[in-house]
Design a protein around this nucleic acid. Structure first.
Length: 426
RNA sequence: GUGGGUGUAGCUCAAUGGUAGAGCACUGGACUGUGGAUCCAGUUGCUGGGGGUUCGAGUCCCCUCACCCACCCCA
């Protein structure tokens, strides 16, 4: 046998059983998004590298070391998207979507790519779903994003969720806080880990997020962002808190929450699942009032979030929640003998107008066929042999009670629909 | 990127350096037109890949690949 090829490192197949759960989750997400007034957008999986350099941020880990970047045949610098927000904003500007109204509310879902070392719940091709609210500075929008994320996760059956919320301040606050932190850390550099020395140079705020004990000790004494937020930023955060607590979101203010992407301003948040580990972030987001401008548009405030499918599926499994997948088969058509196939084929064509139907392909003994029908979870088996053909009927077997009924072939669809309807009423 | 662990049938796992196995699953038969039970039979593997030591390697050594755990980072 020839050598087999395996899926590449960090990628994985979503097999039927899992895929049906994914679809149920995606359907729930699309549904709640529509309830909140969002419309779907689909953007390309690859973009000009520069979009992410300017959007996600040149200094971020994502852009610095995790992008799949290559040159195409014309020498253009291309990257597989590591996240969707820059693409959505690019499309927003490219198609002048601002003209569609003051505020645009979009949702998306699809694969993202990061060349990272695979680990627990971490893949090189992973899948995100998320939203963007473009065109308002209102704290109500921040609250809506947080609540939508929360309600979505709660709605699919997750419990033990916690939401961390923080404010990184507006541009002025950020500059001021960065200066303050840099000053503070400068005197304590020798007490920080090696990575943090580097962070100190590139983006001192990231030191606040370090998990090393030595750094945590230093950071514990650091001034909190809350202490220097300007009045407007304080008010904004208070308003978000007030609204979010009305929605019964289990949140807390975590003054050390700093997210990995450069474009956030003011509100940032992250939701995690307690029982699958403190570090298991299911999703997060925040306000990004500068991004549209950075990508060449007019000054336009916006807020959004993204969440990870793999993480969500994992959390559901940890919670023992069985997301209902696709419904079972309605009918299994069992032809008996070669000469029964044309009639069976015709019957399948007819029934498939409204029902999910499995038609046996091979000339197998009836007991084997019924066994297959059981295993496929068929509600009824439609048996067609020479007897049935000569009488113009089909023998319907109720796979739960075992009862059998002779039904004229022309009535089969009507009969089955009637019986299945009775099922759903019980 | 750093450290540790694990790779044997579709799945879960056995096999003191001596002929690769079991359970489940799958297919068929018992039952030539009636499923889920039972019994019987059968299929499935370059033991992740490559090299080395040895009379002999799933087992020991080296390399490599993949996955898992921790760190890092995040979704």
């Amino acid at each position: 046998m020839a050598k087999r090829i395996k899926a590449m490192r960090g990628t994985h197949d979503v097999l039927p059983e899992q895929a049906s759960r994914w679809r149920a989750i995606e359907d729930e997400f699309a549904k709640i998004c529509r309830q909140y007034g969002y419309r779907e957008i689909r953007t390309p999986i690859f973009e000009a590298t520069e979009l992410f350099e300017r959007g996600t941020g040149f200094s971020t880990d994502v852009v610095q070391k995790e992008m799949y970047t290559f040159e195409d045949k014309k020498g253009r610098r291309v990257s597989l998207r590591p996240e969707a927000t820059p693409s959505v904003i690019r499309a927003y500007l490219e198609h002048s979507l601002a003209k569609q109204g003051k505020v645009l509310k979009l949702f998306y879902l699809g694969p993202m790519f990061r060349y990272d070392r695979p680990g627990a719940g971490r893949y090189r091709q992973f899948h995100q779903l998320g939203i963007e609210i473009i065109g308002t500075p209102s704290a109500v929008a921040d609250a809506e994003a947080i609540v939508l994320l929360w309600e979505f996760l709660r709605g699919i059956g997750l419990s033990g969720l916690k939401m961390r919320v923080n404010s990184l301040g507006c541009e002025k606050c950020r500059v001021e806080y960065s200066r303050l932190i840099r000053e503070f850390l400068k005197e304590r550099l020798e007490r920080l880990c090696d990575d943090c020395h580097e962070r100190f140079e590139r983006n001192p705020l990231r030191v606040l997020d370090c998990k090393q004990e030595m750094c945590k000790a230093v950071v514990a004494e650091a001034p909190e962002i809350g202490s220097i937020l300007c009045e407007a930023c304080q008010e904004h955060l208070a308003e978000v808190e007030n609204l979010v607590s009305q929605a019964n979101v289990d949140y807390y203010i975590d003054s050390r929450l700093v997210r990995g992407l450069d474009y956030y301003t003011r509100t940032v948040f992250e939701v995690f699942h307690v029982s699958s580990g403190v570090d298991n972030s299911l999703g997060g987001g925040g306000r990004y009032d500068r991004l549209v401008e950075d990508l060449g548009g007019p000054q336009t405030p916006a807020v959004g979030f993204s969440a990870g499918m793999e993480r969500i599926a994992q959390a559901l499994e940890a919670d023992g929640v069985d997301v209902k997948g696709e419904s079972r088969l309605d009918v299994f058509i069992a032809p008996m003998g070669k000469q029964a196939f044309p009639t069976a084929f015709k019957l399948a064509l007819d029934l498939r107008q409204a029902l999910s139907v499995w038609l046996e392909f091979d000339d197998r003994k009836i007991d084997r066929q019924l066994r297959s029908a059981s295993r496929l979870g068929a509600r009824f088996a439609a048996i067609i042999g020479s007897e049935e053909i000569s009488k113009g009927i089909v023998k319907m077997k109720d796979m739960i009670s075992g009862e059998q009924f002779e039904v004229p072939q022309s009535e089969a669809l009507k009969w089955l629909k009637h019986r299945l309807k009775e099922d759903s009423l019980e």
